[in-house]
Design a protein around this nucleic acid. Structure first.
Length: 475
RNA sequence: GCCCCCAUCGUCCAGCGGCCUAGGACAUCGCCCUUUCAAGGCGGUAACGGGGAUUCGAAUUCCCCUGGGGGCACCA
């Protein structure tokens, strides 16, 4: 029986969760769930200066919202410094690591000098073989002291990546690296290797930006433990639409922003899963059970993928349409209360969602179309570009007159409110004439089906808005 | 500069030596439907970066070039 799968998602709490990390979390989660294994959340907050508690909370909150539940309580590396210290001592005693007395300033100056002379900047490892006497003298002189891991001077490092196959690099191009800061706190390499070992992580699935560092982590791991290290799989990176590094400049890349814009977790999981992976049958729309059932690291792409907001929006629309009305209402309620208050009219919300469901790409866009229902008459505003369009409609005054007349006399039920006939009597095609009504009543030239919208709004308010438009037109 | 990874339509993927006159999806264009805008239906445009090599046969294998991305921290 193969060892049970155990993976971890290990973000640094230095900011919000963005689509790249979210995709990494998702792939780890899918892999664990597919194999019936464990998915651990490990917060890598060894850099106390950059880590913030609020980001720890924020990342957990976003992960829960995304639907990626983790097993166990979640681990904070900042609470395990004693373990890392013990491991560091072990490495120092065994000679795998050594004390380095170079200051950051000195190293920077040497690199600068190297560049000036046209040489490749590289750590010179001058502290590598200092005698005990030298070390004592430097310590007595009050020099700061870091712990550096000793990498091989020659030979080749190689490991088999689950996605890319064998990856190799010459040790001569890898310099010794710091594993304990001068202040005694551990760095990523140390904490990472120690935790993966102690937690029994079987598979490390992470971004390709960490590919080169794997050689170093593996060397450290070997110095710590003779057993088999975890298998590694490096995911292709997610790029911006222009294929450059993904950043704020490219629009919403923070999951929280997407959440606020009204993207559905199920749609996000679906879209993110398809960025760098595809199921055997090639379907585009997959629910989470299907994702779990068909996910396979072997099918992960090798090349970086560009993040495409348009496709995400399309997919989100697909998922909005698949929701039942109660599900849609539940999904939209948090955003709706933010807009309209906690005591908003739920019946009105439900009716608006029902009318808008088949056309919206995001919950936010859907609610944009509902704003006119919640606007008090004093606050009701018509979008400038929409008003502009209205004024250009031929015989718009006559149209508004006719519709107003219809609304004063017609029965006030959903089916009875239908001004198409009166518009047609003017010799105007309903298609062309009705555009004005959208703007006058809904404040925008494109929105919810206007007959139903008028019905929801009520006779007084609907007529009031049409008359206001007429007045503005003649003023 | 050095090291590593990668390379099929604008974008995301399929293709894993013959089934490819290269398939699907998003986007885009046209038509239909239509209570605006959408959604939906139908149809179209659009790609194997270049050069060698292997082979009866290459998008699929190998090499070089080019291009893109990543790494080279007392960040992770």
């Amino acid at each position: 029986m193969p060892a049970p799968v155990k993976v971890r998602f290990s973000p640094a709490p230095t900011g919000f969760l963005h689509v790249g990390s979210a995709r990494t979390a998702l792939f780890n989660w899918l892999f664990a769930r597919h194999h019936g294994g464990e998915f651990i959340l490990r917060i890598e907050d060894t850099d106390r200066a950059r880590s913030r508690d609020e980001w720890v909370v924020g990342i957990q909150d976003t992960l829960r919202w995304l639907g990626l539940d983790w097993d166990g309580l979640g681990v904070l590396q900042s609470q395990r410094f004693a373990e890392y210290r013990a491991a560091a001592d072990q490495l120092l005693e065994g000679g795998a690591a050594y004390e380095c007395f170079c200051t950051p300033e000195e190293i920077a100056a040497r690199n600068e000098a190297a560049r000036a002379e046209g040489r490749t900047p590289s750590h010179d490892e001058r502290c590598r073989d200092r005698s005990p006497a030298e070390r004592a003298a430097l310590t007595d002189a009050g020099r700061p002291r870091t712990l550096r891991f000793r990498t091989p001077e020659e030979g080749t490092s190689s490991f088999v990546d689950l996605i890319r196959g064998e990856v190799r690099v010459e040790w001569s191009t890898v310099t010794d690296f710091v594993i304990v800061r001068a202040d005694g706190t551990p760095l990523f390499f140390l904490a990472n290797a120690v935790d993966d070992l102690e937690m029994g992580i079987t598979h490390v699935i992470r971004g390709e930006d960490l590919l080169d560092s794997t050689h170093r982590v593996l060397a450290l791991r070997r110095a710590l433990d003779p057993g088999s290290p975890p298998a590694y799989a490096h995911l292709p990176l997610i790029l911006g639409p222009d294929r450059s590094k993904l950043s704020k400049r490219h629009g919403s890349v923070a999951l929280e922003e997407l959440r606020e814009a009204g993207y559905l977790p199920v749609a996000l999981r679906n879209y993110l899963a398809l960025l760098g992976w595809s199921p055997p049958e090639g379907q585009e729309i997959l629910d989470t059970d299907e994702l779990i059932a068909t996910f396979d690291l072997d099918a992960v792409t090798h090349a970086a993928a560009a993040f495409d907001h348009q496709k995400l929006a399309w997919m989100n629309g697909e998922w909005i349409r698949r929701l039942t009305l109660p599900e849609l209402e539940a999904a939209a309620l948090p955003l709706a209360t933010t807009r309209y208050g906690d005591d908003l009219d739920r019946g009105l919300l439900r009716a608006a969602l029902d009318l808008g469901q088949e056309r919206a790409a995001t919950l936010g866009a859907l609610l944009d179309q509902a704003d006119f229902l919640y606007a008090a008459e004093d606050d009701f505003r018509i979008a400038p570009d929409s008003w502009d369009k209205l004024t250009k409609i031929e015989r718009v005054g006559e149209i508004l007159d006719a519709v107003a007349a219809h609304l004063t006399t017609c029965e006030w039920t959903p089916g009875a409110i239908d001004p198409r006939a009166v518009v047609e009597q003017l010799g105007i095609k309903p298609r062309d004439g009705l555009r004005a009504i959208y703007t006058a009543v809904e404040g925008r030239h494109a929105g919810l089906p206007v007959f139903d919208a008028i019905c929801l709004l009520g006779q007084e308010r609907a007529l009031g808005r049409i008359r206001a438009a007429q007045a503005r037109l003649t003023s």
